[in-house]
């Protein structure tokens, strides 16, 4: 237990971010969101409300969608983190990225990285089959431009639900 001592100085942690091991020094109060943006310069993940209400900060931690603004980086030591920057395979966009373009599923784009990471988690969870279920299980991601119909359509396409309509 850290030699029984509390730690209020910086700690060295290791995160596997988008497939690469990254060592960084964080304070106990550094959020995963701030560590990604300010230390690793992965600014695709956005700080919206910073209170877990808007979903703009959504990333995948050990494969599951999470609000990085409410995660303390020090508690994620050893975790695998995937951000929007880690979804494409080289020049080939992730199917959800392509689907968001195909369906014009954004206007200002600020919520989009969180929407897409959340949708990756949603599809992996395998619980949403209908548009209503997609809407319910994407309710943690707010789009103030109101692109919701296009977002649902994009997710349906990526789920392979587009055929047969």
């Amino acid at each position: 237990m850290n030699d029984g001592n509390y730690n209020d100085a910086c700690s060295r942690i290791t995160l596997r971010v988008n497939g690469a091991a990254k060592q960084l020094d964080v304070s106990p109060w550094t959020t995963l969101l701030d560590a990604l943006r300010e230390q690793l310069h992965l600014t695709g993940t956005k700080k919206g409300c910073d209170h877990g209400q808007c979903g703009a900060c959504t990333v995948l931690v050990d494969g599951r969608r999470s609000n990085s603004c409410l995660s303390l980086a020090i508690m994620r030591d050893g975790a695998e983190v995937t951000t929007i920057e880690g979804l494409a395979e080289g020049q080939a966009l992730h199917p959800l990225q392509q689907a968001f373009i195909d369906h014009d599923a954004f206007q200002c784009g600020y919520c989009t990285p969180g929407q897409i990471c959340s949708a990756v988690g949603l599809i992996r969870e395998g619980r949403a089959r209908t548009p209503d279920e997609i809407r319910e299980l994407m309710s943690g991601n707010i789009c103030r431009c109101g692109a919701y119909p296009q977002i649902v359509a994009a997710i349906e396409q990526a789920m392979g639900h587009e055929e047969g309509r």
Binding site: M1, N2, G4, N5, Y6, N7, D8, S11, S27, P28, W29, T31, L72, I74, M75
Partner: peptide
């Protein structure tokens, strides 16, 4: 955010 110290507990009793 306010500062605080952090302890990672390894067993229930210590926590």
């Amino acid at each position: 955010m306010n500062r605080f110290a952090y302890l990672r507990a390894d067993d229930v009793g210590a926590a």
